[in-house]
Design a protein around this nucleic acid. Sequence first.
DNA 1: TAGATTGTTAATCGATTAACAATC
DNA 2: TAGATTGTTAATCGATTAACAATC
Lengths: 212, 212
Amino acid sequence: MRKEKISSAVIRRLPRYYRHLDDLYRGGTVRISSSALAKSMGLTASQIRQDLSCFGGFGQQGYGYNVERLRAEVAEILGMHRGHTVLILGAGNLGRALIENFPFAINGFRLVAAFDVSPALVGTRLGGVPICHMDTLESFLRDNPTSVGVLTVPARVAVESARRLASCGVTGIWNFTNVELPERELSGVRVENVHFADSLLTLSYMISEEPV
Amino acid sequence: MRKEKISSAVIRRLPRYYRHLDDLYRGGTVRISSSALAKSMGLTASQIRQDLSCFGGFGQQGYGYNVERLRAEVAEILGMHRGHTVLILGAGNLGRALIENFPFAINGFRLVAAFDVSPALVGTRLGGVPICHMDTLESFLRDNPTSVGVLTVPARVAVESARRLASCGVTGIWNFTNVELPERELSGVRVENVHFADSLLTLSYMISEEPV
DNA sequence: TAGATTGTTAATCGATTAACAATC
DNA sequence: TAGATTGTTAATCGATTAACAATC
């Protein structure tokens, strides 16, 4: 039974499903039951069937799920074939790491440009991508509407950069700054945060309080 | 009423509490009520009082919470003053970004060393930290027991590296590889994952399906 | 056909929200 | 004292798990 409103708990599991199904697919597995997938992912079979049934019935009684088909369905649900585009704001260490090492294409995104203010960088290319001056962001976005902006800028310009992206019609911001963006004011824009510090502090708690 | 088993939902909110309290503290705010904090964080006052009451009663009726004290209590709960140490495995782009830019000290961790296999890097220093050869990891950990290992190695050596860390007594692994580590086999080790791809795919879903 | 496994409904569990007595 | 706000208990809501008829 398709649901209209998908809970964020389900959404956050989808990429993991995709990753596991992709591994199975590449390993040559043709079919898998919810219980086998559950076991390898550390979930319950019930949960997997519930999660998938939010989007449709992809399995077959007595058989299970066809790995290739389910992988493709999950990719479709995640929007991996929508031709999303992305640009990177801030070509410091982290920005460069993403430009040179993150597999945007494999995840359905085309990296079109990076922006920075450093005169040494502007005008050069990195990993096949041109580095433009931040001052040209608005005109670039006017000519090249882009789905997502990646924020790898210094914290002090994070909010300002987010506003500029939002006002130019970007639909998503992938925020690597440790700053909480004013999401309510960034209308029409979805924000996904990668807060390194929050993540490390969670680990700090776990190793401080709870022995495994 | 102190609870013995804290849910992971609460734990994941603690770093955000810390961040907001730290901002308030630096901004000179002396006291804050649960409802004021809730408003600025987008939570409910009830939830904040419930969360904090897992660890003790830090407020005062009719007054609210003393910002400096609550900030210190949350820092304590998170284990920020335990003298945790950290080393980085893999000094590629991402490893370097963390070494040079991530404020380990501010988050209660002391970065003691980085490890890599590149002859060009081994023996040099980066951001004040020595880069050692991966072959010397075990002997280093024998002489310098370390709390946490950061995995910024290539995916193909991620599991092997995690096992080596685990067998040398590390208590936490901060995993930046897009590989699912065999946590059950890493006994005594807590794993915190930063899966860039999962995060981007979540954003991909949000901009594909749900208009804000 | 018999066995396996789905999709879905019902039951349980846990987390969030509401309410309020206690008290600063 | 009166007003404000906590900590905690109770109510609600939502997510996970269990059960099972449907069916390949």
